[in-house]
Amino acid sequence: MPEGSASLQLAVGDRVVYPNQGVCRVSAIDVKEVAGQKLTFVTMRREEDGAVVMVPEGKVLAIGVRKVASAE
């Protein structure tokens, strides 16, 4: 991610809310080559049905992904 860009610090195992998809758990953060460029992807699995969603790390905030609020 370019320096100075806002990002959401995620780790494998974090629970997040993905708008219009529901609650997901981060299952992987991997670098993949797409069209000759190396990009970091956040892979999330929906808790409702296990569907897998992959989002480029740089788009996580723009999409509206946020961490699940704690009970505290």
Rank of each mutant, 00 (worst) to 15 (best):
G50H: 04
D30M: 10
S70K: 10
G13F: 01
L39W: 06
Y18V: 15
Y18R: 02
S5H: 12
Q37M: 10
A35D: 14
L39Y: 09
A62D: 13
A35E: 12
G13D: 03
V34T: 05
Q21P: 01
K59D: 15
L8S: 09
D49G: 04
G50R: 02
E48A: 13
V34I: 11
K67A: 07
K32H: 12
Q9I: 10
Q37L: 10
V55C: 05
K38C: 02
L10F: 08
A62M: 08
I63W: 05
V60S: 05
P56L: 12
R46F: 08
Q21M: 15
Q37G: 08
S7D: 10
F41T: 06
A28G: 08
R15F: 14
G4M: 11
E72L: 10
L61N: 14
E72T: 10
R25F: 11
A6K: 13
C24F: 15
G50V: 03
K38Y: 12
V55E: 06
V34L: 06
I29Q: 00
E57Q: 10
E72M: 10
R46L: 03
L8E: 07
G4Q: 11
M54C: 04
K59T: 13
G50C: 02
R45H: 14
S7V: 12
K67E: 06
Y18F: 14
M44T: 01
M1H: 14
C24W: 15
T43P: 00
M44Y: 03
V23N: 04
G36P: 00
E72H: 10
G50P: 02
Q9D: 09
K67S: 06
Y18N: 02
P56C: 07
D30F: 15
A28C: 00
E47D: 05
E47Y: 04
K32R: 14
V53K: 03
D14R: 00
K59S: 12
V17P: 02
G36L: 02
R46M: 04
R15Q: 06
V53S: 04
Q21W: 15
M44H: 02
G4F: 09
G58V: 10
Q21K: 14
S7G: 13
K59A: 13
E3Q: 11
K32Y: 15
V34D: 04
A71M: 12
V55P: 01
G64E: 08
I63F: 07
D49S: 03
V42A: 00
P2W: 07
A69W: 04
V16F: 07
A6D: 10
G22P: 02
Q9T: 11
E3C: 04
F41K: 02
